[in-house]
């Protein structure tokens, strides 16, 4: 194989891999962003340095969020001061809380348990400690 052919083959392989990555990401991201119609809204507010939550029925919680297993929830994410990022790593819930904007993320937990909630965008002094927990409870009703 000539020198130039080798290089073209190499570039073609790289481009093929990239196209695969791109198309696959497109498909997955499209699916991920498709919020189920029956998802219940939870308002999430970030502020230095804790998270607070408001359920659809008006109940409010600070730092610890209780949800029911097997339901879909969509988070409406706000910030009261600087940028934060709402993150439940175990459920790949992740979206920035930007003052002046409302962002969305959704999930439908299917195993009960307690999971960490954290902030993943630098927000100052106690950014490291802007932690909370998510409690997924069995739905008894």
């Amino acid at each position: 194989m000539g020198h130039d052919t080798a290089e073209w083959v190499f570039v073609a392989i790289v481009i093929a891999v990239l196209i695969y990555v791109g198309v696959d990401s497109w498909i997955v991201q499209k699916a991920v962003e498709d919020v189920p119609a029956d998802a219940e809204v939870i308002k999430v507010t970030g502020q230095q340095w804790f998270w607070s939550f408001e359920h659809a029925d008006g109940t409010k919680e600070i730092s610890t969020l209780h949800v029911k297993k097997g339901h879909a929830y969509v988070f409406e994410i706000y910030s009261r001061d600087v940028m934060h990022s709402f993150n439940i790593p175990d459920w790949v819930v992740f979206e920035d809380a930007v003052p002046g904007h409302t962002n969305h993320a959704w999930f439908a937990p299917d195993t009960a348990g307690t999971y960490p909630i954290q902030c993943r965008e630098y927000c100052g002094l106690l950014h490291y400690n802007m932690r909370g927990s998510l409690v997924v409870e069995d739905d008894k009703s």
């Binding site: 891999v17 990555v21 696959d24 990401s25 991920v32 990022s85 992740f94 993943r120």
Partner: peptide, 16 residues
Amino acid sequence: GVLNSAMPLDFISHGT
């Protein structure tokens, strides 16, 4: 870097 740029994966990696 390529993995970062794949949108769904970036939601795992960004800010970490």
